Amino acid sequence: AEIMKKTDFDKVASEYTKIGTISTTGEMSPLDAREDLIKKADEKGADVVVLTSGQTENKIHGTADIYKKK
């Protein structure tokens, strides 16, 4: 799966169907969080990951919607 910015995804959204939401939390780098989200998306058969939230304090927390091409 590839990560797309919401603004970029909005241009092609009609080509995809939302298949779920994924999240990651833990003591990790932003890059590790990104890789974890991609891994989870791949496991669910998603083609595209669109980040919906991200937070960093002591731990990273990120959520994303996942989509499959129609």
Rank of each mutant, 00 (worst) to 15 (best):
R34S: 07
K59A: 14
I38F: 03
E35W: 13
A41T: 00
P30F: 13
K69N: 04
E43M: 10
T25N: 14
Y16S: 02
D42V: 14
I38Q: 06
F9A: 01
K44I: 12
T24S: 06
K5G: 09
G45N: 07
P30W: 15
K18S: 05
D32M: 12
I38N: 03
G45Q: 05
I19M: 06
K6Y: 05
G62A: 15
E43Y: 08
G20K: 00
M4D: 01
D10W: 08
E15L: 12
S53G: 12
G26P: 09
V48G: 00
K70L: 08
R34N: 07
V50T: 01
T7K: 12
N58W: 07
D10V: 08
N58C: 12
K40M: 09
A33Q: 10
E43A: 13
L51N: 00
H61V: 15
T52P: 10
D32Q: 14
Y67N: 04
A33E: 07
I22P: 01
D8K: 04
D32P: 03
T21S: 11
E43L: 12
T63L: 08
E43S: 08
G54N: 12
M28W: 05
I22D: 03
S14M: 09
K40D: 00
V12T: 03
D32I: 07
T25W: 10
D42M: 15
F9D: 00
E57P: 11
H61W: 14
K70C: 09
S53P: 09
D36I: 09
T52E: 08
Q55W: 15
K6S: 09
L51G: 02
S23G: 05
R34W: 13
K70S: 07
E2H: 14
S29W: 10
D32E: 14
E57Q: 10
K18M: 08
T52C: 13
K18C: 10
K6Q: 13
K11E: 07
A41C: 02
K40Y: 05
T25F: 11
D10S: 06
K11Y: 05
K59N: 14
S29L: 08
T7Q: 11
K18T: 04
I22E: 02
D10L: 10
D42Y: 12
E27Q: 11
L31W: 08
D47V: 05
T52R: 14
A13L: 05
I22F: 02
R34Q: 10
E35A: 15
I3F: 10
D10F: 05
Q55Y: 15
F9C: 02
V49P: 00
Q55I: 14
I38W: 03
K68C: 07
I19C: 07
K40C: 06
Q55A: 11
K40H: 05
S23I: 09
K11Q: 08
D65M: 01
T24E: 03
D8E: 10
S29Y: 09
E2C: 15
T25E: 12
K44N: 07
I22C: 03
I22S: 02
T21P: 01
D10C: 13
G62T: 15
A13F: 06
K68N: 04
K69T: 03
V12G: 01
D32S: 06
K6H: 07
I66N: 01
N58A: 12
D36E: 14
E43R: 08
G62S: 13
T7H: 12
E15C: 15
N58Y: 08
N58R: 08
V49G: 02
L51D: 03
D42R: 13
P30H: 08
T21V: 08
D47G: 01
E27R: 12
K68A: 06
K44T: 04
T25Q: 11
K11A: 06
P30T: 12
M28D: 06
G62C: 15
G20L: 00
K6R: 11
K59G: 13
D8C: 09
V50Q: 01
T24P: 04
S29P: 06
A13V: 07
L31H: 13
T17P: 02
T17D: 11
V12L: 07
I22V: 08
T7R: 08
G62H: 15
L51E: 02
H61Q: 08
K69W: 04
L51A: 01
A33V: 09
T56M: 12
M28H: 07
K6G: 06
V49W: 00
T24D: 03
L51H: 03
A46N: 00
K5P: 09
T56V: 11
A64D: 03
T24K: 01
G20R: 00
T24I: 15
R34Y: 14
T24C: 14
D8I: 04
V50W: 00
G20I: 02
K44E: 07
D65E: 09
H61A: 11
I60C: 13
G54L: 15
Q55S: 12
Y16L: 03
G54P: 11
I66H: 01
K59M: 14
A1K: 02
A41N: 00
V12R: 05
K18E: 03
S23D: 08
E2D: 06
K68G: 03
K18G: 03
A1M: 06
E43N: 06
A46V: 02
I60G: 12
A41P: 01
K69M: 04
D36N: 08
K40S: 05
S29H: 08
D47W: 04
T24F: 14
M4S: 02
E43F: 06
S29D: 13
E15I: 06
E57W: 06
A13T: 04
L31E: 15
K18Y: 15
K44G: 04
E2I: 15
S53E: 10
M28K: 08
Q55H: 10
D10Y: 06
G54E: 15
K11D: 04
K69G: 03
D42G: 11
E35C: 12
V49M: 08
T52K: 10
G45R: 05
K5I: 10
V49T: 00
T25Y: 11
N58M: 10
S23L: 08
F9K: 00
T21L: 04
I19R: 00
V50R: 00
I3C: 06
T56W: 13
L51R: 02
T56G: 14
T52L: 09
T21W: 06
E27W: 13
K5Y: 14
L31M: 11
L51I: 15
E27G: 13
I19F: 03
T52V: 11
T63V: 08
G62I: 15
T25M: 10
T17L: 12
D65G: 03
K11L: 10
K44C: 15
I22Q: 01
F9R: 00
I38E: 01
R34M: 15
V49S: 01
T17W: 13
S53N: 11
E2T: 15
D65C: 10
K40N: 04
E15Q: 13
D36T: 08
D10E: 13
E2N: 10
H61C: 13
T17N: 08
Q55F: 15
D32K: 09
I38D: 01
G20A: 04
S14I: 07
E15M: 11
P30L: 13
K39D: 03
F9G: 00
G20N: 00
I19Q: 02
A64E: 03
E57T: 12
Y16K: 02
A13E: 06
V48A: 03
K70E: 05
K69Y: 05
K59E: 15
T63I: 08
Y67H: 05
A46M: 01
D65P: 04
A1F: 02
T25C: 15
I66M: 07
T17F: 14
G45F: 06
K40E: 03
D10I: 10
A13M: 07
E15G: 09
D47P: 00
D32L: 14
V48D: 00
A46K: 00
